[in-house]
Design a protein around this nucleic acid. Structure first.
Length: 109
RNA sequence: UCAGUUGGUCAGAUGGUCGCUGUAAGGCUGUUAUGGUCUUAGAGAGGAAAGUCCGAGCAUCAAAAGAACAGAGUGCCAGUUAACGGCUGGUGAAGGUGACUUUAAGGAAAGUGCAACAGAGAUAGACUGCCCCGCCCAUGCGGAGCGAUGAUGGAAAGGUGGAGUAAGAGCCCACCGAGCGGUUGGUAACAAUCGCUGCAAUGUAAACCCCACUCGAUGCAAGGUUAAGAUUGGGCAAAUGUGCGUUCUUUCACGCCCAACAAAAACACCGCUGGAACUUGUUGGCGACAGCAAGUCUGGAUAGAUGACCAUCCAAAACAGAACUCGGCUUAUAGACCAACUGAAAAC
RNA sequence: GCAGGGUUGGUAGAGCGGUCGAUUACACCAGUCUUGAAAACUGGCAUACCUGAGAGGGUAUCUGGGGUUCGAAUCCCUAACCCUGCG
């Protein structure tokens, strides 16, 4: 299945309606949906660096999310904060794992 | 060996596991429709892809021709190119011991403007002065000659030295500089040389300007297909209006302009990648480059495709990601390598 | 992707190549007034380095770097950063 979010309107909807979960270098917006698959969009602003750095960060984020067990019936937007570009791959992985654990707890409550 | 100058090349590689985007072939499957999925094969960022500073292709503005005026750009000469403000080779000027580097380098006797402060004075007359004569004890006053002297300044009326004089002056002489003319060399910029002129002319044109040459505007969010359908108000006009900066003329076409509302489907498609292309060889040219032959097909995404991990190579580390496509320029850049040349020292 | 605009004291915002390190307002500091504060009035007020006991003086800086000019915040080139528009 394709897990990408594509439309600008979808992004805006999630920014407005979504619940936020924070960690040191990321913010995740979560909205529940009717469909069994999840969708996720990555948002990295121009402040984080030039095109090269942003692209690399996005690829790493996608690679990590692909290997994770992400809670379904939800749509997400993963927003990177300023220091995220300087992290190593393993640190990124740990942090995102923690992030999605948090999300699961929230959803179960 | 040390210190440099110029030009060029590379931009991690190999193997394995998981994953991403196109292409081709085949299988299975679905929708109103572009599809979905699996297998196999093969492809998948740069020297700057960047900045958007120039030049083109391409597209739209219905199609054209001419004149004047605006506006913008370029500016030594010759060549090169599809074109250029690029590049190549020269000339002049400036810098460097040198290899070599830098250079927006037309015109200031077409005209206008500006030149603060300082300075006697800023483009040019006066002032301060120098010398001689007369009056006079002298200060000083009057007359004649002179253009040297002047605490400035970015710039002060060709410079240095001599001769000359009452004092002085290109008034005269030598050298240097400048202008004009000739000759020789060079396609030319220009250079060399000879003669003449005692020599008049500050700087600024990246101030306006003059001269020569070039230029329509807008950019793929251009523009088109599926793809039909559509409202209201105001102004101008019935060719006397509108039509690629403005005005005018001619052909031609046609209503034109402004404001508001409504509609806008998509995993959409075309434009979209075979090109002034690349590689090798060869011929011409000092070179930029051009010709010929053979071979190659080499990204096409659309929330936007190249990542993660492991092993080895001492270490994998720079700047950095195509978005219609090319030719340049500019800027960023770790490390490694090659070639030619210069200076210094030492040895032979 | 393409097109356009800007950058001047702490903030906003003027600025003819020379009298401009810079006018004005707000903010800030000191004083007057007040029991105290506000308002009002008066004065001061950019930064760095050098020098000086101090008062003061000198040099540099208008986003950075070059150039034109005797002289640049202003003109030209180049880079960085910020902002706006487009279907």
């Amino acid at each position: 299945m394709d897990h990408r979010l594509k439309k600008n309107s979808q992004f805006n909807y999630i920014y407005k309606k979504g619940e936020r979960v924070h960690t040191e270098n990321f913010t995740l917006f979560v909205v529940k949906s009717r469909f069994s698959c999840y969708k996720i969009g990555f948002s990295i602003s121009k402040k984080l660096g030039k095109a090269n750095k942003r692209n690399k960060l996005k690829r790493r984020m996608r690679e990590i999310v692909r290997n994770l067990q992400v809670p379904s019936f939800c749509n997400y937007v993963l927003l990177a904060k300023e220091n995220a570009t300087s992290l190593e791959f393993l640190d990124l992985k740990k942090e995102l794992e923690k992030l999605f654990e948090k999300v699961e707890k929230k959803l179960n409550v």
